[in-house]
């Protein structure tokens, strides 16, 4: 929830900030130069070591957060800063206001997207008690900017864990996938929770799931995007969920160029309709690559293939099919739990 301080502008003396840094982080870490900031409108003005006052609470600003995207690794997000909460020494992520409107392309389709601090703040309130989302609160700064203060999640990206499971795909699929599928179903159920409340995630990608090492749960992060939807309000979210399931089932992306170069006999069995509708260099019909994948699971993947005749409109439809697939995967792995 917001701790809105519309009436008075919260601030802090330089000496008080220095004393807090010394107390929480050690006297040798007090910087010689820093600013006290209450208005974050120009986020480029917020420098390393500055102290930002939000809702009477001081945050000691550290580095930019980074994100790999569109083939650009470690692209800095200048409006997202790691910070130390000087009231208790904990690490937080500050997301400053950055309104952005742009078009993204999925399978040749342009989708108009908006970055909205209000949306993320609204969802933070909604998911405050939900274990499968990042947590945090929001505050209006002295200029009325909606700054989100997020709890730091200790742990790696979920997708990076997956590719290390098993010695090869068969080992992964028979010995680890049942658990992975359960985790995935939990993540889809979390998205259903948003959809049931009329909210979209807006940017469902596999690098937007963090495995919380302390709580042993997977958490969706970064839900400040909204997209201009058509008839199907949740279609874009669902295509994101489909791509993640294809990744998890394949123990990584199964890429057409790699098959062409390394497994020509498998490549020769593929048709255009077997490919991923969103990313046409990836295979969606994975049963053609890994024949032991149960039909019930492969049928879900085919909803996200070029050859699909029908698409999922809701997470309920997908969860219904996932329950059947789960039963078949359990039979296959010989485990009952």
């Amino acid at each position: 929830m917001a701790s809105n301080s519309e009436q008075k502008i919260p601030t802090m003396s330089r000496q008080a900030a220095e004393a807090l840094i010394a107390e929480k982080m050690g006297p040798d870490r007090v910087p010689r130069k820093f600013k006290i900031i209450t208005d974050t409108s120009d986020f480029f003005r917020v420098d390393y070591n500055d102290v930002v006052i939000l809702g009477d609470n001081p945050y000691w600003v550290k580095r930019y957060e980074k994100e790999g995207r569109f083939g650009l690794d470690d692209e800095p997000k200048y409006w997202v800063r790691r910070a130390i909460d000087l009231s208790d020494g904990s690490t937080k992520i500050l997301k400053l206001v950055f309104h952005e409107e742009f078009e993204t392309k999925i399978g040749g389709i342009s989708i108009r997207c908006f970055r909205s601090p209000k949306k993320e703040a609204r969802i933070l309130d909604l998911v405050a008690e939900h274990p499968n989302f990042m947590h945090g609160h929001w505050v209006l700064d002295s200029a009325g900017n909606n700054v989100r203060i997020l709890e730091f999640i200790p742990g790696p990206r979920y997708d990076q864990l997956i590719i290390d499971y098993g010695t090869d795909h068969q080992d992964y699929f028979f010995n680890y996938f049942k658990e992975v599928l359960d985790q995935y179903i939990e993540l889809v159920t979390a998205i259903k929770f948003l959809h049931d409340h009329g909210e979209k995630h807006g940017d469902i990608r596999r690098d937007h799931i963090i495995h919380d090492r302390e709580c042993k749960v997977n958490r969706w992060i970064d839900f400040d995007y909204n997209y201009m939807h058509g008839e199907s309000m949740f279609g874009f979210d669902l295509q994101g969920l489909g791509n993640i399931l294809i990744f998890l089932t394949g123990r990584g992306d199964v890429l057409v160029p790699e098959l062409y170069q390394q497994q020509r006999e498998v490549f020769d069995r593929l048709w255009g309709e077997d490919l991923n509708i969103s990313y046409k260099n990836r295979v969606a019909n994975l049963q053609k690559i890994f024949p032991y994948i149960p039909k019930s699971l492969n049928r879900i993947l085919l909803h996200f293939s070029i050859g699909a005749k029908i698409f999922y409109e809701t997470t309920d439809q997908m969860l219904f099919d996932l329950a059947k697939a789960r039963a078949d995967v359990i039979k296959l792995s010989g485990r009952t739990s």
Partner: peptide, 15 residues
């Protein structure tokens, strides 16, 4: 609309 568009946006007439 194309097949891909219907996948992402849905179709009012189909609905």
């Amino acid at each position: 609309i194309s097949h891909d568009e219907e996948f992402v946006f849905g179709s009012t007439s189909s609905k």
